[in-house]
């Protein structure tokens, strides 16, 4: 087995009184090792601290205790090796689609990404001219432009219509397969977690601790009515109710 790409060592996060969330423990003793090439689905109820976990990995937030190692080095600030896809697209409204994608300065492959994402004609469009699904694809392209090794996906499919969601889901899977980028997807949607992950981590309600960590070895593409997937879904739903 290859050396771990990412290691979380007993990471806890507490938001103190100064924060609007009050004195809240969001994460407790999360230990997790992610290897290159994995697609880790992190599943947990809304507001359990999943996003916080992802933000710690990205280097956008520091853990209160414990540490996060990326390629053996402690994470203390964001890096272009770790791409972050926010839940909302957050495109800069005054920049064109292409400028948004090339924002990180990696340049050159912006056009290529546009083609891949089926957005070739929209390079010069402004974000407000895009539909919700298109804006998500641009946000995804922006995160992919600097060619990250690790892609952090913070509910990138939330609040999308079912067809769009499936579309983008297929897109994500293709990116993972073709580009060999390691992915961590945070979601509260079981179907999404099961459809994409090679591994599933189930978090409890706040403060989030890891309840289950299981390998998903079914072949792709997965259909939710496949017997194996359906059985797993029922099992996970039971687990989620218990905790």
């Amino acid at each position: 087995m290859s050396a771990p790409l990412l290691q979380l060592q007993q990471v806890s996060k507490r938001f103190n009184d100064g924060d609007e969330r009050g004195n809240v423990v969001a994460l407790r003793d999360i230990s997790l090792t992610v290897h290159e090439g994995e697609f880790v689905s992190v599943l947990g109820p809304s507001g359990c601290g999943k996003s916080t976990l992802l933000r710690i990995i990205a280097g956008l937030t520091a853990p209160t205790t414990g540490q996060c190692l990326y390629k053996g080095q402690p994470v203390n600030k964001p890096s272009l090796e770790r791409g972050y896809v926010f839940q909302d697209p957050r495109l800069f409204p005054w920049l064109t689609v292409l400028e948004n994608i090339n924002l990180a300065g990696a340049g050159a492959n912006g056009e290529e990404l546009l083609n891949k994402m089926d957005l070739a004609e929209f390079g010069q469009a402004l974000p407000h001219e895009l539909s919700g699904g298109m804006a998500r694809r641009v946000a995804l392209a922006r995160a992919l432009a600097p060619q990250p090794h690790l892609l952090l996906l913070d509910e990138p499919l939330a609040n999308l219509d079912v067809p769009l969601r499936q579309n983008l889901q297929a897109e994500l899977q293709r990116i993972w397969e073709q580009q060999g980028v390691t992915c961590i997807l945070v979601t509260h949607n079981i179907d999404e977690a099961l459809a994409l992950g090679t591994r599933l981590i189930l978090l409890s309600k706040r403060p989030a601790i890891i309840r289950y960590d299981l390998a998903l070895d079914m072949s792709f593409p997965r259909k939710i009515h496949q017997a194996q997937v359906a059985a797993l879904k029922t099992q996970i739903l039971e687990w989620m109710e218990v905790h």
């Binding site: 964001p78 972050y84 926010f86 957050r90 005054w94 924002l103 990180a104 300065g105």
Partner: peptide, 25 residues
Amino acid sequence: KEYWEVSKALCLTPLKTLTTLVIPG
């Protein structure tokens, strides 16, 4: 603040943050 986070996540230099976020925003 969401846009500031984007500029952080994309590791934009202070100059780039100025020209692509602070001034147009």
